[in-house]
Computed example of a mutant assay.
Amino acid sequence: MITIYDIAQKMGVNPSTVSRALRGAPGTSAALREKIQKAAQEMGYSPNLMARQLRMKTTSIIGVILDEEWNWYSGAIAGGVQSYAREKDIQLIFWNATSAADQEAGLAVFEEMRIGGVVFASTQIGEHSGEYPKLPFPAVFVNRINSSKTSRIMTDDMEGAMFAAEHLLSLGHRDIGFINGPEYSIHSLNRLKGVKKALQDAGVPFVEDWYAKTDWKEQAAYESALRILGGSIRPTALISGNDEMAIGIYDAARELGLSIPEDVSVIGYNNHTCCDYMRPKLSTVSLPLWEMGRNALEAVFMKMNGKEIQKDKRIVNGELIVRESTGPCLRK
């Protein structure tokens, strides 16, 4: 079956250009449009029946573009999207886009199908950020920063990190370390701001020797925890930039003969499913991806039905989840 991608490859143009040319939409010259239509005829291209039907009427189909392959993070966003879709009888089409080219291809398909709107979902703030082309349907961005006034659903990482630090402070901890993600990540920068502010507000110093930047992975967190917890003076509590890194922190603590939370309290971030399977179960701050996905689809649906969105940016906050890995400071 010949698709618009096959035609685009033969003609050396973008799939979106082919889509516009085949529909006679503005944006392509008459000469190029004629060449593309001729190539499509020669290659035996036939428009999808569903797309043809959708051109004739208003649709309740909404596209969802995810910025990476299916995993816990994208699955949580998708779960929230699907929850609202079931309530409103909305049909969904998911598209995985790990590159700008993948995203453009997805948008071309959605445009050809005449979908009603699109949700752009990212698990990393700042990924694929910047200006987006003018879209022929309503769009909402999840976890993305862009300079346009397109509606966005965000979370407050700074506030979430403050929740984690304030929880440890409430338990009497004053020697608190932080193993964070990479410095280029806006998540990391905002969480660092949150930890520093909570400590400053409590009159507790932020100790640089107890701080580490990693790649969000368990191995790097393990190595950083060995250094921080193996020093002559160690913190009584550690904040982990995400829950998976806490696995590495647990391994380092065991290797050093330290008990959690008696010798060192550990708190994570995200509320990943791994938290309940760690021993002790990991205290954490939730990253409300499910709620963000649900809010995004609601916003798109409202736009499709002509309802005004009051704010371009909607903040969905996480919450502190206390389990077994944090306890009172026992240091005298």
Results as ranks from 00 to 15, higher is better:
F163I: 05
D102T: 10
M302W: 02
E42G: 05
D263E: 04
N271W: 10
A21N: 04
D251A: 15
W70E: 15
L49C: 09
V142N: 02
D312F: 02
T28Y: 09
W95V: 14
R331K: 13
G257L: 02
K38N: 13
A8V: 09
F94V: 00
L289D: 03
Q53A: 15
V195R: 08
G194A: 00
M302N: 10
F178T: 03
K311T: 09
L22R: 08
Q219D: 14
I36W: 06
D157L: 02
F163S: 00
Y184K: 15
F94W: 12
E68L: 13
C329L: 07
D263K: 01
D209L: 04
R294H: 11
L238E: 07
I153G: 01
V207G: 05
D156P: 03
S224P: 03
T236S: 11
T17P: 10
V316A: 04
Q103N: 10
V64S: 09
M158S: 12
G203D: 05
Q9L: 13
H173V: 04
E127Y: 13
L22Q: 05
Q41V: 07
E104G: 12
F206T: 06
I115H: 00
L287N: 15
M11T: 07
A212Q: 05
K196V: 01
L66E: 05
G177C: 02
I239S: 00
Q91L: 10
G27F: 07
H187V: 14
E319M: 04
G306K: 03
K35T: 04
K10F: 09
S325L: 01
R55N: 14
H128I: 11
S240E: 02
G79V: 03
G177S: 01
A202R: 07
K134N: 14
G44Y: 06
G306R: 01
N305K: 12
